[in-house]
Nucleic acid binder design. Structure first.
Lengths: 140, 140
DNA sequence: CTTGCTCCTACAGTGACTGGAGGATGCAAC
DNA sequence: GTTGCATCCTCCAGTCACTGTAGGAGCAAG
């Protein structure tokens, strides 16, 4: 039961850098674990699960603030999962918004590159397009 | 010709906050303009163009480092626009990569929300999906 | 002369880490 | 026992692209 795990080992198992683990501890996402006599952090399998959860959620783009709530909720398994769905739903909408923005942006970049005749900067369509803000529908 | 523009007016015309303009000056993207007797910055139409260029490029997601190069290039209109195309092309590839990542992410989020039966956190599919890292093809 | 807006500098804070300095610990080989 | 190396510790500064605040000065209108 006491299969103690060093911070380096935890780092390898969860795929999170050692410094980042310590940062998460300071930020309150990971608990301060017990220490060895030589003051080293001693983790267990529960910490690996929690850190993997954090890593996965961060990869999915959840902010640390969301993560704090998500972790708190997952610690109390008998509560309603409504707030969890709310956070995930809000995040999904944000992701969809980002995709839409990036797709528009990609269109503008492609257009810029296609119409450029690759001569001198003076006639560069890319530079012109960047300077001329008028045809990209920006608010202002 | 001397239609002097205050920093606030420049801010309104280019759609960039006053503090951000001063930040750009410190960062070397905007030149330090002449000053009035009362030590206020005096801009002209050229500054409006340059700042609009910067704003537009930033909106398109170019980093300040890229911007420095882009601005330098646009100041010498007789050079080749090859480097410009290179920067824009690199950026386009990055944008396409981001879109792909976000689309995968959107799929995972949707799947999580769809399969959740909205009961207690203990059975919440969203929490489970976040905890279980195995089926999302993450490297590790 | 006062009110209220704009402007000035200088510096701290954001989010989510990352990296380095300078030192302690742990363990294996010699 | 000691040498050497990897790993660990804390603390703090830096990253990016700003944003916000404090504390003051300039300037035009009423």
């Amino acid at each position: 039961m006491a299969g103690d795990i060093s911070i380096g080992e935890l780092s390898r198992r969860a795929g999170v850098k050692v410094t980042t683990i310590r940062f998460y501890e300071g930020a309150g996402l990971m608990p301060a674990p017990p220490r060895s006599e030589g003051d080293r952090r001693l983790y267990d399998a529960g910490h690996v699960r929690r850190l993997s959860f954090i890593r996965h959620a961060r990869e999915l783009g959840f902010e640390m603030e969301d993560l704090r709530t998500l972790l708190e909720l997952s610690d109390r398994p008998d509560g309603s999962c409504g707030p969890v769905d709310e956070i995930a739903g809000r995040h999904l909408a944000a992701v969809e918004g980002k995709i839409a923005k990036l797709t528009a942006l990609k269109g503008e970049l492609s257009r810029m590159l296609e119409t450029c005749n690759h001569g001198a900067v003076g006639e560069c369509r890319v530079i012109e397009a960047l300077a001329d803000h008028s045809h990209c529908g920006g608010e202002h």
